[in-house]
Simulated assay, not measured.
Amino acid sequence: MQVERAQKAASQDATASALLPLSIRGLTVTYGEKPAVFSVDLDIQPARMTAIVGPNGAGKSTLLKAALGILTPLSGQTLCFGAPVKSSLNRIAYVPQRASIDWDFPARVIDVVLMGLYRELGLLRRIRDGHRQRAMHCLSRVGMEQFADRQIGQLSGGQQQRVFLARALAQDAALYLLDEPFAGVDAATEKAIISVLRDLRAEGRSIVAVHHDLATVQSYFDDVVLINTRKIASGPVAQTFTPKLVQETYGGRLPTMIES
């Protein structure tokens, strides 16, 4: 009987995991002997917008990169819809930090967006009219279609961020992972990005974003993950983004916008 119960519980866990866009267990990443992320368990819920919040150096970006396999963790497992991430990359779109990109690379805006279709294009990279139309549609969604032939390095920071979001849209993913998408962008770009992300959520897509602005967590996101090397808490914003838990995460005085 106990064996049957255990088998049933394992089956239920597997079924639940298969429905989750991202499921992380025991993830630990070290730089030398120092842990950047320590033993993190995390389940990202479907069709939700989730913020990863914590102080500088807390492991937010490291968590995303390790979950994707960009960084090799010391230990832990990450599943995407119940399958290993390496076999699920076609279901994931990743937008890196803008500061980590070489903007001097000689590429037009339309070419950058077409890079989001590389798995579909195959080894020969034959770009057809349908591919260009899709790329232009993605640029239109972020308000950048008129810049299609502009060199990417000639754009402002906010415009560059919109283009990389358009590239992610071209992948038509189920899970979108964004590393500081609002960092260093103008108000119009921030408004455009959050509008697109909400549209994706309405389409049933899941969004996870490393986020630094505590003042907008409650208005932008459904769920929040509080992290400072280890996970402090995670869950719906209303229950999780509390002064007590934020204070524990930041280890100091709370910003005034969430003290009330």
Rank of each mutant, 00 (worst) to 15 (best):
26 G>N: 13
69 G>V: 04
42 L>C: 05
129 D>L: 14
256 T>S: 13
154 Q>F: 03
162 R>V: 00
19 L>Y: 04
140 S>Y: 09
68 L>I: 08
254 L>F: 01
150 R>S: 12
148 A>N: 09
139 L>C: 08
69 G>I: 05
256 T>K: 13
260 S>V: 14
208 V>L: 07
62 T>F: 05
40 V>T: 03
96 P>L: 12
95 V>G: 00
241 F>A: 01
59 G>Q: 02
198 R>G: 11
133 Q>L: 10
195 S>M: 07
132 R>E: 08
199 D>Y: 03
254 L>T: 10
128 R>K: 07
30 T>E: 09
209 A>Q: 00
125 R>N: 15
53 V>H: 00
207 I>H: 02
253 R>E: 15
176 Y>R: 02
41 D>C: 04
57 G>E: 05
204 G>E: 03
231 K>L: 06
84 P>M: 08
21 P>W: 02
207 I>V: 15
71 L>I: 11
152 I>F: 02
42 L>G: 00
141 R>D: 08
199 D>A: 05
13 D>W: 14
118 Y>T: 09
233 A>Y: 10
219 S>Q: 13
143 G>H: 09
137 H>R: 13
51 A>M: 02
78 T>A: 15
105 F>D: 08
74 L>Y: 08
137 H>W: 12
153 G>A: 14
233 A>M: 05
170 A>L: 07
250 Y>T: 03
205 R>M: 08
106 P>T: 09
5 R>T: 08
228 N>T: 06
123 L>T: 07
67 A>D: 03
89 L>K: 12
129 D>C: 11
160 Q>Y: 02
146 Q>G: 13
157 G>K: 01
19 L>M: 14
4 E>M: 12
54 G>I: 03
56 N>P: 03
237 V>A: 05
118 Y>S: 12
105 F>I: 13
208 V>R: 00
210 V>L: 04
203 E>N: 04
163 V>I: 11
248 E>Q: 13
86 K>R: 13
12 Q>A: 14
30 T>P: 00
104 D>V: 14
191 K>S: 07
192 A>K: 00
98 R>F: 00
6 A>E: 14
64 L>C: 10
214 L>Q: 03
140 S>A: 12
197 L>Q: 03
133 Q>G: 05
79 L>P: 02
75 S>M: 07
172 D>I: 03
43 D>Y: 14
34 K>D: 12
191 K>Q: 09
235 G>Q: 12
85 V>K: 00
137 H>I: 07
58 A>S: 14
180 E>G: 03
241 F>Y: 01
227 I>N: 00
155 L>H: 03
72 T>S: 15
244 K>I: 06
31 Y>L: 08
255 P>C: 07
109 V>L: 03
6 A>T: 14
27 L>S: 06
